[in-house]
Write a protein that binds this DNA or RNA. Sequence first.
DNA 1: GCATCGGATTTTTTT
DNA 2: AATCCGATGC
Length: 727
Amino acid sequence: MNDLLEVLNPQQQQAVAAPAGPTLVLAGPGSGKTRVLTYRIAYLVGAMNVPAWHILAVTFTNKAARQMGERVQKLLGAQAEGIWLGTFHAVCGRILRREADLLPVDRDFVIFDADDQETLMKEVVREANLDDKLYRPASILDAISRAKNDLVAAEDFPVHNYRDEVTRRLYLQYQQRLVRNNAMDFDDMLVYTNQILENYQVVRETYSHKFEHILVDEFQDTNLAQYAILRNLALLHHNLYVVGDEDQSIYRWRGADYRNIQRFQTDFKDARVILLEQNYRSTQTILDGAMAVIDRNLNRTRKKLFTEQTRGDRINLIVAQDDRDEASRVVSAIRDGIIRERQPASAFAVMYRTNAQSRLLEEAFRREGIPYRLVGAQRFYGRREVKDIISFLRLIHNPKDEVSLRRVINLPARGIGDKSIEKLAEAAAQAGISMGEVLLDMAAGGTETGLSISREGARLLAFARMLHAWRESSTKNTPAILFDRVVEDTGYQNYIQDHSDEGIERWENVLELRTVLLEYEDQGLGAFLEAMALVADQDTLPEAVDAPVMLTLHAAKGLEFDQVFIVGLDEMLLPHSRSRDDEEALAEERRLLYVGITRARKRLTLTRAQRRRSPYGSYEETIPSRFLDDIPAEVLQGSSRGLPGRFAAKQWDDYSRWESPAFMPARREAQPAAKRFKAGMQVRHKTYGRGVVKASRLEHGDETVEVYFEGYGLKALVASLAGLEIL
DNA sequence: GCATCGGATTTTTTT
DNA sequence: AATCCGATGC
């Protein structure tokens, strides 16, 4: 055990070997957080003799869970047997299946993903005779989700205006529908788990007795529901060990509340607090840039990140002509790194704010013939054909799943249209059972509903018999055999293979799904479906592939790369336009950039484009991200910040409301009426040193000077900002 | 019941 | 630009 501690610095040792009791580890980026967590687990088992099955470790993403699992396995081997380690949702799923008797749904409940939720909500809205333009299902669901994250039940939904009143009604309806579908959504998993812990003393005691030690990663991203669960689980032993960094809280929109860190310290007065500040990842230059960005945020504990590494290269700034140019410059920089500098391709990562930004990058990579890895985005599991097949399987597993039933009952087209489906729905309503159950009843020869006599009944009956046969098959055969039957019986291959390239790709996806299914031969269909619902972010490519990675800033959390490119440092993108009038949201955008910057080990490149194709149509001029202003010139190199556009009078008017007041002063006053510089002048710049003016022009009410600096090359500088000294 | 066409509508991040 | 929705015609 002692050699375990030897490789750690004093703070890490203190954290790993902390005595039992509530503990809060505030860990800056790259401070060895995951290491501390895994070693802590090893320490509990090895030094404190805690059996692994008394330990619960919770993470946010599957990626993090997998990573931690592997490391713990390596440290402990067989001793790790029995530990509960997984995402919040996976852990809750496990508890809920075990305690299903206490739920309004049965053990075979399915988990509705965002698509399913929207389908269901659309129906609820329509049923309520409301306009789905006015009450957009997505936005209603958003409100409901927020309520659930705050543990607010439908009955308690606060009503301040008419819209709230409507939302409340829809919330109530939606919950009812979920139960009727024997389903729950992601948020329900947390809400239900907390409910049974709160309401049933036996359950609470069982689990809080079982989990002597609870460890939580990314604690700053917990929402109230998650916090409540943790508190209930830790009730008996109080051994809640949480690791987090408020500066990396980036899931506010999902209900995360970094104030849980403060809440924790209030609820557990005796909590030990340990600070990890030494960074083992990045160069000091990168850390300086990161701190300069994050220090602008208020209400936080200021941390001083330091490293023993060298200063390293400056942060590179590329200002591209337009977004396409931006993508190709990033890709050619990566190509140079791979070819000229002989860096492994997987040392590079490109990060962006929105998934949509990956498209141009993909195209650029393809133009250069460089293979790449795309994390998340147009997810494999989101593909239509994949969802189709999963819907069949889900319906077989849980016939009450009406969303799946409606999706597949006429797929491929078998003459069952809206009319027939409505008849079926009516029959179900009258019999007081679900549509799927009506079908199964029909297949079994039941005449209870009298549906099978009518003309459309014949077609329904045919489908019903198929469903019935599949159900039989599912109890006797492995999931893969069932899968084959479904595909064959429905003629699904012919349906999607329309001889186009796309059709072939679709079919390949179906086959790919089958290979995933093979891994669940032993665990069964239920486990497969649960994994499908919860493992949506899974990368579809094996990690071993040596290729650059493209991913969102959100997906980048917890990862690190030698060379990081963050693209799109423009207003509207980063910070994103949606956060424009919300201080808190803006602070979160800043944290997002901070997370991105601190992923870099050796080199960091920030890029922006002067023009961008708007998602709507034509090109639009951009404004440089306000965050660029915060990075001190001493740590930057490359293009000028591309600032001229920012002060163009016209744009200023359009976008002035964008600027927070604190950033506005001084700069506008400095507009010169005439040129101060002309070609040939010797000047001095505080970063670049001595240079010769090549050209100067008045632009957008400011003076842009091109200066040639020894060792840096030609730079375009804005006179009012650059602080050029004429020699 | 189904296919096709045209018009309207796109609001970020993920378990 | 791309996708979704609805209306129309077969």
